[in-house]
Structures are given as structure tokens and as C-alpha cells.
Design a protein around this nucleic acid. Structure first.
Length: 453
RNA sequence: GGUAACGUGGCGGAAUGGUUACGCAGAGGAUUGCAAAUCCUUGUAUCCCGGUUCGAUUCCGGGCGUUACCUCCA
């Protein structure tokens, strides 16, 4: 469609019209997981949010014109610690967490990104970038460590609205005698004992955090690209450091033109985070809830706002999808969604606004016209909802059923006999018993049907 | 301490310099033996104090409150 896309750019803090560098090569880089532990609901938010942005960009610029890169960080101190704690090898840990991560993405109905590079496959390029930084005098070696010289880069702190002196005054940065300045961050560090290591001009070691994103975005999207995404908590230091490294190594004016950051999932209004110990793993929901329910819940607030996670939210979303499946139809032809209906998504990914549109389309679809149902279903599918058939949706619910179908039908017969005898007390008891087991009875047009609550 | 974000009806949650968000819950009705589900109808809101303005919930300033980042974090 011809409408413009607007994005809230963290670099500057204003909503801006999105102008790609090249309409035929739109690039988006999103920080993926560090694979040291099972993904949780907080991790799920950027997965869904940027999956949606990917869809919106493709809608505007064409499927082949958008490149979505999401990294997998498979070397990091947390990984080393976690593998020691779990007493398994690094590879064993990273491959198993990566597999879980992919399963979770699939569960949430997220598309596979165009590229999903691993940090360990790109160490050479990281070494190369460090060499470049040293050559440009933005980095220095000391005791087998290489550090980035924060004071040398004058725009340091621009993204996060910080100035270096304040940071140091806060004295919460890691102090080290090796550093010229406490704010400097590590680009390369030596590995000890059996820690994973690679050869480098500074001895066997491994890269610092931040570096993989600078290197892999460059590899797939170039020195300067359109959109960089991630969680709010990555703004500092991670994204600030990425910018510093990339701009100073590549000698460019800018790194990513638009920075998009999602807000946090909270539990009782407090940030859900591993360090807080209040996380809910994505996999914990798989048995009880269809992934679409989580997906809807995750986009029920605007991506930039905090979203409080609780059972009521899940119940509401489940209810909504149950209702919406009432108007689901199989769509075999291409159905166009009205520009006006897509508008909220183009306007900084306003998902609550789009959900309101879906409710409106549902109201129209329930009038019964096939065409309206096709439009409604297509509009839902655009954001990855109602992507399963009605049968799949229902059969998911049946997998947790405690009664067999024949048992249910038997109970229904018993109840109908009681009703014929006007023994309503017994009839109601049977109905309530079934309801306790999650079976909902509906008497309609003289027939009794059942479904899962 | 420094830097930000947020404060909308019972709850969740958009938008907006003057006009209906939307959903859930509630109320009334249709239907039903009673329900459920579904359908129809419907009430309720912009933290406080100033300023700009014909007019502010929206812009500006101050206050109060909540949260986050400044250390690993999506």
C-alpha cells in the first residue's frame, strides 16, 4: 500500500516517517538470544513485535525487498557459567537452548528471519573489526585485553542520553587496572583453562559482548542500515557500544538509522527478568495454551509500553480467539485488506488499534456473508492469528481433555433423559460436573452439543 | 544522585487542541426448563496545580505517584 510507515525512533525519541536507504533492500537487525537458558515470556515480546514489523515492511516494500537478521549469541560469559553450573559442555548447552528457542518461535508462529547468524561462526570478522578499531586508534591493547576507548568517540551516549562523566561518577562500571578509563568496554579478553578460545593477535581469547552484533549486521546489511531492534534494556550499554564500535571501525556517520525498542513484560508491575527471578518460560505454556493466545496477549498493548502478564490477560485473549474462530473460514484466494484497516499497523505498529479493527471486521463477518468472513480471516492471518484451521484450534484443546468423547456423549444422553423426565436437578448436576472437567454443554435447536471451555 | 518512560472509565488498553476507540467485566433484553454460547441495547474516564488558547485529557512549566536504565537482562 502507498501509506507511509512511522516508527518511534529511540535515537531522538520521536516518531518519524520511515525512509529506507534503498526501497529494494530494506534491512532490519534485531538482537536475538544469548543461548544460555530457556527463553521466557519477556524474550517472547521482541520475537513477536519484530516479526510483525517484518510483515509490515514486506507488505509495503515487497517480500523480496526486506532482509531480517536476528543473531544467536553462542559465546558469552553467561554461557560459560551456565554450562559449568549445569555440568554440560558449551556446545551441548548452546545447541539445546537454540533448539528450544526455535521451538518457541514456532509455537508463537513467528516467521524464520532471512538470516540467523551465530557469533561463533563470525569470530574472524570480529578480530578484523578489532584490528580496524586499533588502527583507527579507538581501541587499545593491555595485558591481552583489548578495550574500546570511550572518550575518543564524541557521540558516545547519544542513543541513551548519557554522558560519560556521569557514568563514571555512578561508579557502577567495572573497574579494572587494565583500562585507561573506567567507562571503556572490552572488545577482546583472554580465555583461561578450558574456556572457549580463538587465536588472535592478542593471544587466545574470546570477543566481548556487543561485538557480534556490529560484525554480523555489517556482514548482512552493510555499514549503515535501516532498522535496529531489541528490548529497552539493551539501549545501554549494548546498543550504545554497538554504535561506537561500528561507526568507529567502519568510519561512517551512522550505524542504524531507526532504533526500535520494545517495553518490558512485567509481573505485578515489576520487570520480568532472569535476575529478578520472576520469569515464566515460554515452554511452560505449551501444554495449556495455544501459541496464538500468547501471541495475541503479547500484542494487546503497544510494543513500547510495559505489559503486565497475568492469568486474566490470558483468559481474555483465549475468549477472544474462541469467539473469532466462530467466523473463521478457509481462504484459498488472495483477499486484500483495506488500506484504512491496515493503517494502525503502519503507524508505529499500533497493535491495539489493529485489534480494534479486527473486532470491527468480526462484527461484520458474523452477519454471515462469506466475503466478509474471508476478509476477517485474512486480516487476522496478516498478524499471525487464526493461522491454524478451526479443527487444529479445537484439537489443541482436546489434547488436555480428561474425558473421552464416548464418555462425554454418554453423560449428555443421561442428562437429556433426565431433562425429558423433567428431572432438572439431575440434569443440571451432570452439566455442572462436565463443566468442572472443562466440557461446556450447549442446548441449541433441540440438539445438545459440547465443546471445550 | 544522573537519565528516561508512564499516570485515561471497575479492569485492560488506543487515540486526540473541540466530535464513538476497542476488549473484558457490569446492567437490560432476545433465546433457554434453567443455563451456556451467541445476538441486540447500554452506563461509567482522561493524577494535581499553574500557563498558552476561543477551547487541553492532548502543548508548556511545576508537583505528586509508578516503573525502568545507569551492573547481567528482551
Amino acid at each position: 500500500m502507498n501509506k507511509d510507515i512511522f516508527l518511534l525512533n529511540s535515537l531522538g525519541g520521536k516518531k518519524e516517517k520511515f525512509n529506507p536507504i534503498d526501497k529494494k533492500k530494506v534491512g532490519m537487525y534485531v538482537c536475538g538470544p544469548t543461548v544460555y537458558d530457556d527463553p521466557h515470556i519477556g524474550n517472547a515480546r521482541p520475537l513477536v513485535v519484530f516479526d510483525l514489523l517484518f510483515k509490515v515492511l514486506k507488505c509495503k516494500y515487497g517480500n523480496k525487498s526486506v532482509t531480517y537478521v536476528r543473531n544467536i549469541t553462542d559465546i558469552d560469559d553467561k554461557i560459560i557459567q551456565s554450562s559449568k553450573k549445569k555440568n554440560i559442555s558449551i556446545t551441548e548447552l548452546t545447541t539445546s537452548v537454540t533448539t528450544k528457542f526455535h521451538n518457541d518461535c514456532n509455537y508463537l508462529n513467528c516467521e524464520v528471519p532471512t538470516y540467523e547468524p551465530k557469533a561463533t561462526d563470525n569470530i574472524e570478522l570480529m578480530v578484523k573489526m578489532i584490528k580496524e578499531l586499533i588502527k583507527n586508534e579507538f581501541a587499545y591493547e593491555n595485558e591481552k585485553h583489548v578495550y574500546f576507548k570511550v572518550k575518543k568517540y564524541e557521540d558516545y551516549g547519544k542513543l541513551s542520553n548519557k554522558n560519560i562523566d556521569d557514568l563514571i561518577a555512578g561508579s557502577r562500571v567495572e573497574l579494572s587496572d587494565n583500562k585507561e578509563n573506567p567507562g571503556d568496554f572490552v572488545l577482546w579478553k583472554p580465555s583461561i583453562d578450558d574456556e572457549p578460545s580463538w587465536d588472535s593477535p592478542w593471544g587466545r581469547g574470546r570477543p566481548g559482548w556487543h561485538l557480534e552484533c556490529s560484525v554480523m549486521s555489517k556482514k548482512y546489511l552493510g555499514n549503515t542500515f535501516d532498522i535496529h531492534g531489541g528490548g529497552r534494556d539493551l539501549i545501554f550499554p549494548h546498543h550504545e557500544n554497538e554504535i561506537a564500535q561500528s561507526v568507529c571501525a567502519n568510519r561512517t556517520q551512522s550505524f542504524a538509522n531507526y532504533w526500535v525498542h520494545n517495553g518490558f513484560i512485567t509481573m505485578s508491575k515489576e520487570k520480568m527478568a532472569k535476575s529478578q527471578g520472576n520469569i515464566l518460560k515460554i515452554s511452560d505454556f505449551k501444554k495449556k495454551y495455544n501459541g496464538q493466545i500468547l501471541r495475541l496477549a503479547l500484542i494487546s498493548a503497544h510494543y513500547s509500553q510495559p505489559l503486565d502478564w497475568n492469568d486474566k490477560l490470558m483468559d481474555e485473549c483465549q475468549k477472544t480467539l474462541n469467539k473469532w474462530y466462530g467466523c473463521y473460514v478457509k481462504v484459498n484466494k488472495k483477499v486484500l485488506i483495506d488500506d484504512e484497516d491496515l493503517k494502525p499497523l503502519y503507524d508505529d505498529l499500533n497493535t491495539p488499534g489493529y485489534i480494534a479493527v479486527l473486532h470491527k471486521l468480526y462484527d461484520k463477518a458474523k452477519g454471515g456473508r462469506q466475503e466478509d468472513k474471508e476478509i476477517f480471516t485474512t486480516a487476522c492471518k496478516f498478524i499471525g492469528l487464526l493461522d491454524q484451521t478451526k479443527e487444529e484450534w479445537n484439537s489443541f484443546k482436546e489434547q488436555n481433555l480428561k474425558l473421552s468423547e464416548s464418555e462425554i456423549l454418554k453423560k449428555i444422553n443421561e442428562r437429556n433423559e433426565a431433562r425429558n423426565k423433567k428431572n432438572y436437578e439431575l440434569a443440571d448436576k451432570i452439566r455442572n460436573d462436565l463443566l468442572d472437567k472443562g466440557i461446556l454443554i450447549e442446548d441449541k435447536d433441540g440438539k445438545t452439543t459440547w465443546k471445550i471451555k
